[in-house]
Structure formats: C-alpha cells, structure tokens
Design a protein around this nucleic acid. Structure first.
Length: 943
DNA sequence: CTGCTAGCATA
DNA sequence: GTATGCTAGCAGA
C-alpha cells in the first residue's frame, strides 16, 4: 500500500459525512456518455471499457468534490424484490442490459473497490432502498448524508441532513433545491411521483396529470392523502381521472416509496454503526495501476505516477517553510460544492539560491509544469514580474518572490538574475508548461526579454472549448471542476481605489495565493484535459485555440501605428462643429441643456416642446434614439441638430480623442487586447481599445481609418473573406440554388433578388438588390417577419410574403433551419462545421421570448462560429508561412472576417498574391471560399 | 467610487 | 432578428 497525497481529510471538526453512490443510476449514463472505448483501441472484438472508464471518472470527481468519512457505492443486485410481489408489472418495460455493458459489470465492481470504496450489492433489496436505509441510520447517529445519483427519484430522501448531488452535471438537490426544481418540498415528493407516475419503472400515475397539475393539486390539498379524501371536490377532467385512479394510488405510492427499514445486517457487517463503511487511508496503487494497464487506461496509469509522491519528498517539504495548509471548514451544511478538499498542501517560498536550484532541478525534470505570474499591472504590455509560482504535482507548489517592496519586506533573490537562470528552461520548446490565460503570461515574460516556448496547455482555453457558456476564470474552474475554493485576489490586495500594487502584498500572503493558483491550474488541467483528449472534434478546436493564442499574442505585441496628429486635427474640427450645433440646439430649444444627456433631450423634446413620442425605452421612458430622432426630423428642426451632434460626439469621444491616449509610451503604437474566451460563438473580441468597431459606414467615420498608418517604407494591407457567412450557410444547408450561386461566382444578393422577385439577374433593380441583402442578413440572424418588416420599413404581411418566397426558392435553407432548431432542442447545443460546440441553455426554456432568443442564436451560431473557426485557421496558417519564409510582414489586426497587415514595400507583391490564396485554402467547403485583399498607405486606402 | 441605462460603433 | 465593447449620464453610495 502506498499512501497518496490526495486523500480527503478525515479530521475536521464538523459532523461526519456518509457518501453513498447510486452506482446503478450511473451505469447506463457512463455507458452511453462515453465513446466506444475498447481495451485494444479500435478493435471491436476486444472487451468494451467505456462504462468502466466513465465510472472511474465519476468516482474520482466525486472524491475531489466531497469530503466524506464513510463511503459506499450501491448497486442493484439481480433477483426479485418486494415490489415484484405487490406489482408483477414493475419494471416490465425495461429492456435487458446491453451485452457490452453486462461484460463490464464485474470490472466496475473491482475498480470501485480498488479506488477505496465499499461495494454494496444486497440480494432482494434495490439500491434505492439500501441507500434509504443507510441514510436513515446515519441521520439517527448525527451523520450527514450525501447521495450521489443521477436519478431524481431519490429526491424523496432529501431533508436537512440528506442531500442528493448529481456528479455528472454538478446539480445539487437539497431541501430548497428540490422545492425549486419540482415545486414541492421533499416530504411531498412521493405523493408527487405517485400522481405523475414513473414511465421508466412502468408505474402508472393519474392519467393527464403531469408535473404541473400534480404540483397544483398538492399545493391546494396539502398531501396525497388529503387529496384522495376530497377527490370528489376536484373538478373537470382531472377530477374524473383522479377518481378513476383512487384504488391504484395507495399501491402506486407504496411502490414508489423508498424504504428506510430494510434488513441489511446480514449483508453489511458493522451495522448499525456504519463501521464497515469507514474510509480507509490510501489506496492500493499497485493493484490499481495493474487494473488500468489491463484495460488500456494509459492516461490513468500515468496520472497515478504523477500523484504518487514518495514519502521522503513529503517529509522534505514539511520541513521547509509551509505557507498553506488547506484546512478548509468541514462539511457543515449541504452546500458542498465549495470546499477545499485537497489536503497536505505543500507550498514553498524560495528565498535562497539553494532553494532556487532545488526547484529549478525539479521543474527541469518534470514532464509538465504549471506556471503563474504575479505582476505590477493588469495591463499586459506594462506589467512587470513581482513573483512567479510553479507546480509540478497537485498540492505541491513553490513561490519565487522577486520584487516585493514594502516596509519590512524580506530579502528576495535578484529579479533579473533569477529570470536569467530560468530563461533556458522557459525558452526551451521541449519543456512543457501550462498556465491559466497563457497569452497574458507570454506578454509579461516578454516584458523581461523572455519568449516562452513550450506552452502546451491553457486551462482557460480548455474550459472555453468544453463549456463555452460558463465562466472561465481560475476560481470558477477550481470550484466547478475540483470543488476547491481559494483565496480571493481582493482578499489580499483589496479592491477598487483601495487596491494596493501586488509588490506591496506581504510575501507570505502572496506565496499562498500564487501557489494556490498554479496548483489549481495543474489540478484543473488534470480534470479537463482527459475530456478533450477523449473527443476528437473538441480536441481539434482546442489545438486551434492554442495555436491562435500564440498568434494573437504576436498580433497584440506588434501593435498598430496611429497618426495621432491627424486624429487631433479631426478632434478639433469635430469640437468646433459640435459647439456650433450646441448653440443652434439651445436656440431652438429656447434654453441651454446637455446634448449628451438622453434624459434632458427627452425633457426638451417631449415635455417642453411637446413633440410626439415615437417609442419608449425598456424602462418606459420616451426614447430619443437614432430611429426616433430620424422620424421627428421630418417635421421639426431640432432633432436633426441633436442627431448630428450625437454622431460627432460618438466619433470624438470614442475614437479621435481616445485612440491617441491609448498609444503605448515605449512602442509608440496601439496594442489592443483580443479576448479569446469571451464570445460564445467562438469569435474574438477586442478591447482597450476596441479596434473591431472602428467606423466605416459614414464618410466622417471613415476618416478615423486614415489615421491607421504604416511605418515608413511600409504599407497597410487588408484581406477579408467575401460573404463568408452566406457561403457557410450554403455549405451547411446544401441548398442547390445557393450552392450554384456561389459556385458560379454570382453576386449573391443579386441572385437572391432574382429568385425572390422573379426577374432575370440583369433586370434586378438596386432597390430589389438592397431588399435581398437585408433578407440575406436576416436569415443569418434567425430572422422573423416582424424584424424584417421593421428593418425594411414595410408591412408585416409583405415581409412575411418575402420570407415565404425565399424559402420556396431555397427549400434547402428552410430545411436546414428547421433541423438546426430541432437538434438544438434535443442536444442542448449546436456546432460549427469543425465541431466547436455552442451551448444554448435556454433552448427549451418555458419562457417564450428567452426560448425564441435561443432559437435565433441556434441559427446564427453555427454560421458565425464557423466563420470564426475559419479566420482563426487563416491567422495560424498565414503566420506559419510568414515565419517559415522569414518575412517581415506583420499581422496587426483581426476584425472578424478581415486580417490587417503592415507590409514592407518589397513584400507587397508577394502578400497580394499569397494571403488571399492561403485564406481561401484553409478549408474545402461545398462552395469555394473567396478572400480579397487591398493595399494602401492607411487602413482606409487599403479597402 | 460603483453599477446601471441608453445609445451606438463593428462584423 | 446574431455577436461584441465603450461612452456619457446619472443614481445611489
């Protein structure tokens, strides 16, 4: 027996905890959720192992999430139970266990035991009744019970001391949870189930009574018994069905009631004290490893080695300075998703060269090292390193303080020398590192002249690929995937204006915080990486994100040259014109007011001048937005002034004034930040400043783009995908007419107009083409007739007519949209051509508008998301070629379907030819991809 | 000083 | 009708 470093605590002061796993409920889910794994990969004749693997994953996660003193995994034993006696049809409709699952049962029991769990298999007693009885015994002895089950039927066992959790989806059912989910408290769950019935177990309820009616009846009558007694009062069809079921209901309830008084003593020793279920320290690592190897779980076998800390190493770390102990509070309430479960945290702080050398040797030898930086600033181009932390195995980490500076700060190793000695390891592409938000750390190291190589993983991107709709901060990840909570940054540095620089955070606090971050990063990676590895499509997307991350780092680092003198001139002009407009507006209003305040505009327009209210805002106030002012301007002079002023004010405030302020003092260029894990469709977003919304529609706005210039001897090149989303729609829908339009290189809006208006392509008027363009965009956005009508300013009926004509002409598109909505509803997500998953949590919401929104997103997301995938592929491909040929051209911006470059004059010809070719060639869809490029002295002229 | 709304810039 | 980010104003600390 080897003791591992990962055993849950058993000595905290709170109440003891009994953890019961409903093994049977997970069997089928593990079996179906996992890919078709075989002991010999790819050999269908070798034994199936998917359910075994799924079960291991589930138990490991559970062990991380829940601290327990007693554990058992309960399975259904074969054979008849009392329920079969009172109701022969019980579970009659269940199909027999699939053979591929049956063959795995013995191995599952074995591995559950090897993982240190007691396996309970009581003949003649169903797993649910075993669980109910044990939970009852525990409660009588003051022990809290946590039941892990995917089956909602166990909700009836919930009370103040018993909680049910679902490990596969992190759902928790405590008293409040059950009530929120089902609408009745746990004590009424049996009554509720008896009314609704249980199709899976073939137990009927009352006809026509579903969840809603059941809740209503129970709320009105208080309980099933009261309802039965007063059944005569119940009106309508429900009453009739209820009275017809009166004889059955008591028997149905008996069938569905989980028993708490089963005779178990003959089968489980040590009852009723639960002695036999006590957690034993350690697990038989050797036997477990042999098991993993026998079934081909190489990754798990390897993980065992990583987690396996030699006892002498643990001792050594105990002797060194210990900054964290991980003593979380014990299990005191049913809120168990936020507990630090890792014990024996060994966090070092490095103060001497001897300690430094020891850790350097350790990270040089390690296969994978989690790395985290602590810095002076959140602005990655400015940030300097204050400290670094490393973790090579869960629970073990070291902090290297380098630039803490406060009153009695301890002596620290000199920063530049320490970094110089780490540099060979950091820059070695063969030494694998991982981090959380690696792009930020790349910048930080680059600020000290270090180009980190060998970043193999980024937990933020792992999470983004696996669960795009959930938060991706480290604290969220640790909580969600490890059940670990940690030190809040604000806890050590304060917040808002009172926040202190990290350099002033005491070294011991900083060490604990930083070690925890790199420790958790490694631990999160161990939880997420197997999921990505197991899924080929997601793996592809993750690899793409990792490569994009490095390219984005370089795009950000390159920055964009801005002509600030030109913007200053524009600002001055805009300011002049705005002052004039303001005077004119005040004259027209007869009083001064703030033209930048929608509220004051509203008062002047609607209260003082009595203009008609066109529409109201969400909060019920008369709106003064562009559409409204546009309308009012037809009849009155003032709104036009306000409109022009507002346009200029936006331009000045957001662009001509702001951009020059964003120029980096050292590089003289503007460095935006691309957020890679924000947009749920897979797109990037740009901030500080946002370079993805520089004006282009109006002539005045376009002038801002003239200030985006190239260094002397260089030009700006802009390459963009033509009609990318419509091409993707053609690919996805396989609509004949749309495919033909793109294959024949037609103007797609003209082609659409020709179809919808029934005229020859060369007879299409410019207005018809404009209508067709709006329709095409509407389709990409999941259009409704109402929306189209509003946009075109036409009658709803006319808009409906256009849509109908469109779908008649493009039936493939119609079919694709219907199928997409349906599959989104059944799967809960949609995906891009490359397999990026886009989850839509509200796709089945009972709330109509929310559901509608999710349905439109379901239409839009595959197209927007595939476009995002394509341009990421392009960025990586183009950067690879630039590097391979040692070109001096720099990629400087990405604007969703456009890449912008700063090109030395002598590379312009090459760029013109190669970049569109590369962009068009990143994927072979059912229609050709087309990319176009322009070159000019500035961004405006490059179009 | 912080968080919200209204409004508006892009693909 | 999809997806973002930023500004000013303003209300409540």
């Amino acid at each position: 027996m080897t003791e591992t470093s990962h055993e849950p605590q058993t000595d905290t002061g709170g109440p003891k905890v009994l953890l019961l796993v409903d093994g049977s409920s997970y069997l089928y889910r593990a079996f179906h959720a996992m890919p078709d794994l075989r002991a010999v990969p790819g050999d269908p004749a070798s034994p199936a192992t998917g359910a075994i693997r799924g079960m291991i994953n589930m138990l490991q996660k559970l062990r991380r999430d829940v601290r327990a003193d007693y554990v058992a995994c309960v399975f259904d034993a074969p054979g008849k139970t009392f329920r079969d006696d009172i109701y022969p049809e019980y579970k009659a409709t269940r199909s027999p266990m699939p053979p591929d699952l049956r063959t795995q049962i013995d191995a599952i029991h074995e591995v559950v035991r090897l993982l240190g769990w007691k396996v309970l298999n009581v003949p003649g007693v169903e797993a649910d009744d075993v669980i109910g009885t044990l939970a009852c015994m525990a409660t009588e002895r003051g022990i809290e019970t946590v039941i892990s089950s995917g089956d909602k039927d166990l909700s009836q066992l919930v009370n103040e001391h018993v909680t049910v959790i679902d490990t596969m989806n992190d759902r928790k059912r405590d008293v409040a949870g059950v009530e929120a989910e089902f609408g009745v408290p746990p004590r009424l769950m049996v009554d509720y189930q008896a009314l609704v019935g249980d199709a899976v177990d073939n137990v009927p309820g009352v006809d026509k009574v579903g969840p809603k009616t059941a809740v209503k009846l129970l709320q009105e009558y208080g309980s099933l018994d009261a309802l039965i007694e007063r059944a005569a009062e119940v009106k309508g069809a429900v009453g009739e069905h209820l009275r017809r079921a009166l004889d059955w209901l008591p028997r149905g309830r008996e069938l569905l009631t989980i028993r708490k008084d089963c005779e178990l003593a003959d089968h489980i020793p040590g009852l009723p004290e639960l002695e036999d279920l006590k957690v034993v320290d350690g697990q038989d690592t050797e036997a477990l490893k042999a098991f993993y190897e026998r079934y081909g779980f190489k990754g798990l076998a390897k993980q065992l080695e990583v987690h396996d800390v030699p006892p002498e190493l643990i001792e050594e770390h105990r002797r060194q300075k210990k900054v964290g102990t991980g003593d979380g509070p014990g299990f005191q309430d049913p809120d168990l998703t936020s507990r630090s479960q890792v014990t024996n945290l060994q966090y070092d702080t490095i103060f001497t060269w001897a300690q430094f050398d020891e850790w350097l040797a350790k990270i040089e030898a390690a296969e994978l090292v989690a790395l985290d930086t602590e810095t002076s600033s959140l602005d990655e181009m400015q940030a300097e390193i204050i400290g670094l932390s490393f973790s090579v195995q869960p629970g073990v980490a070291a902090y290297l303080p380098l630039a803490h500076s406060y009153g009695d700060a301890p002596d620290q190793l000199p920063r530049e020398e320490a970094l110089a000695r780490l540099k060979p390891w950091l820059e070695n592409p063969d030494r694998a590192k991982l981090g959380q938000h690696v792009k930020y750390d790349r910048h930080v190291f680059a600020n000290h002249g270090i180009e980190v190589r060998g970043y193999a993983h980024d937990t933020m991107l792992q999470s983004y690929v696996l669960e795009v709709h959930k938060p991706h901060g480290l604290a969220s990840l640790a909580e969600r995937h490890l059940g670990r909570t940690g030190i809040d940054y604000e806890h050590i540095a304060g917040k808002g204006a009172h926040q202190i620089p990290f350099a002033q955070v005491p070294v011991d606090k900083a060490a604990e915080y930083s070690c925890e971050d790199s420790d958790q990063t490694l631990d999160v990676h161990l939880a997420l990486w197997p999921k990505l590895q197991a899924d080929g499509k997601l793996r592809f997307i993750y690899d793409l994100e990792m490569k994009s991350s490095e390219t984005l780092y370089r795009v950000e680092r390159n920055g964009v040259l801005i002509d600030s003198a030109m913007l200053a001139r524009q600002s001055a002009e805009l300011g002049q014109r705005m002052m004039q407009l303001e005077r004119e507006a005040h004259d027209l209003a007869g009083q001064p007011f703030n033209l930048g305040s929608p509220k004051q505009i509203g008062e002047i327009l609607f209260t003082k001048l009595g203009l008609p209210v066109v529409k109201k805002t969400a909060s019920g106030v008369p709106s003064t937005d562009e559409e409204v002012l546009e309308k009012l301007a037809e009849d009155y002079p003032l709104p036009a002034k306000l409109l022009e002023h507002r346009g200029l004010s936006k331009l000045k405030g957001t662009y001509t004034d702001k951009l020059p302020q964003m120029i980096h003092p050292r590089t003289g260029r503007v460095h935006t930040h691309y957020a890679q894990a924000v947009a749920v469709t897979g797109r990037l977003s740009s901030n500080d400043p946002n370079l993805q919304n520089i004006p282009v529609k109006t002539p005045e706005g376009r002038r801002v783009r003239e200030a985006f210039i190239a260094a002397p001897g260089h030009l700006i090149a802009s390459a963009d995908y033509s009609q990318i989303e419509l091409r993707i729609m053609a690919h996805l829908s396989e609509d004949e007419a749309l495919l033909r339009a793109f294959r024949e290189g037609m103007d797609v809006h003209r082609a659409t107009a020709s179809e919808v208006f029934g005229v020859a392509p060369d007879q299409v008027t410019s207005e018809q083409r404009r209508y067709a363009k709006v329709i095409n965009f509407g389709l990409i956005y999941g259009m409704s007739a109402f929306g189209l009508a509003r946009n075109l300013g036409i009658e709803g009926a006319a808009a409906k007519n256009y849509i109908q004509r469109y779908f008649e002409r493009y039936p493939g598109v119609k079919q694709y949209m219907d199928e997409t909505r349906l599959s989104a509803k059944s799967r809960g997500y949609v995906e891009t051509v490359f397999g990026r998953r886009l989850y839509l949590p509200e796709i089945n919401s009972p709330n109509g508008p929310r559901r509608g929104g999710a349905e439109r997103a379901a239409i839009n997301a595959p197209m927007q998301g595939t476009a995002a995938d394509l341009i990421k592929l392009s960025m990586v491909a183009v950067q690879d070629v630039l590097d391979a040929q040692q070109r001096r051209t720099k990629m400087i911006m990405q604007v969703h379907d456009e890449l912008v470059f700063e090109v030395p004059e002598d590379e312009v010809d090459w760029i013109r030819a190669e970049i569109p070719r590369l962009m068009a060639g990143v994927a072979q869809l059912r229609v050709p991809l087309l990319a176009e490029i322009g070159v000019g002295a500035n961004w405006e002229k490059a179009h």
